[in-house]
Design a protein around this nucleic acid. Structure first.
Ligand SMILES: [Mn+2]
Ligand SMILES: [Mn+2]
Ligand SMILES: [Zn+2]
Ligand SMILES: [Zn+2]
Lengths: 135, 135
DNA sequence: GCAGCATTTAGAATTGTTCTAAACTTCTTG
DNA sequence: CAAGAAGTTTAGAACAATTCTAAATGCTGC
């Protein structure tokens, strides 16, 4: 994401994670290009195609750690599986129903007015807008 | 939901479902009071407390059939489990994060402006707003 | 280089959900 | 009001996504 060269070992260290070969390989796939939405399974398939295969357990571990470190955000839109989103900024999603594709759209153009106040004893954490569309 | 007496057998027949003892018992729990958000597991616990115990498979079958018949709507807000919502009208949700509680709020007061147009070849199906709050 | 701690991994375990196939109910029709 | 046909229920097995276990391996700071 920074315009400066993405030194993945350094970025992982900065997030409090040791830059192991596996985590660096996954970080490269996740953060080298533009924003992405992956599932554990889809990322596992991708990384296996690499010279550096990584176990599925490690993919799950890394996704959860990256999320906990704020490098990823977890998106739940359909029963059964989680998506992990490399875009951690404010934005919302189109979800294309039969295929399970997720697309970002910026939250800047969207105005949500008139939201009720949170229930007693709770603080607002985030507002998710999911625009479900069908082919 | 109708002010008229809720004849569950008739309502089930109207939805194209045979009014079996099990479905009537579940419909009573779901539709007799105000709107509810249940999981398969929570509804199973409830119905077991009744004189008419129902297997978990039947709870899942009934929830899926009720949803397919438009009597319920499925809500996915957290990884791992689905909620089923007796409120099938337009509305949105508060999700209380550690406890997993869902609360409705009416969509009438909420204005969402500036939503981008759906991706090429898709039609808008629904817009879900999830307001995530924490204790 | 080594110790010490973190990480990886294969496989087992867990969880939520669906499937299977046999027993049982409901509905239709005579 | 019988059957019979078709739909439903159920226990338990199967599945799919995810997490856990414990042993092997890898990073890091000294
Ligand atoms: Mn998780
Ligand atoms: Mn379902
Ligand atoms: Zn996104
Ligand atoms: Zn609701």
């Amino acid at each position: 994401m920074p315009a400066t060269s993405p030194d993945f070992p350094d970025r992982l260290r900065a997030a409090g994670l040791r830059p192991t070969r596996q985590r660096v390989a996954l970080a490269r796939l996740l953060f080298e290009g533009g924003h992405r939405h992956v599932t554990a399974e889809s990322l596992h398939v991708e990384v296996k195609a690499t010279r550096m295969p990584v176990s599925l357990a490690t993919v799950y571990n890394a996704l959860n750690q990256f999320r906990d470190a704020g490098l990823l955000r977890e998106v739940v839109v359909a029963p059964g599986r989680s998506y992990f989103d490399t875009n951690t900024g404010h934005h919302h999603h189109f979800f294309v129903e039969p295929d399970g594709e997720l697309h970002d759209f910026p939250s800047e153009k969207v105005t949500i007015a008139g939201l009720p106040t949170p229930p007693k004893g709770t603080r607002l954490a985030r507002v998710d807008v999911i625009v479900r569309v069908r082919r």
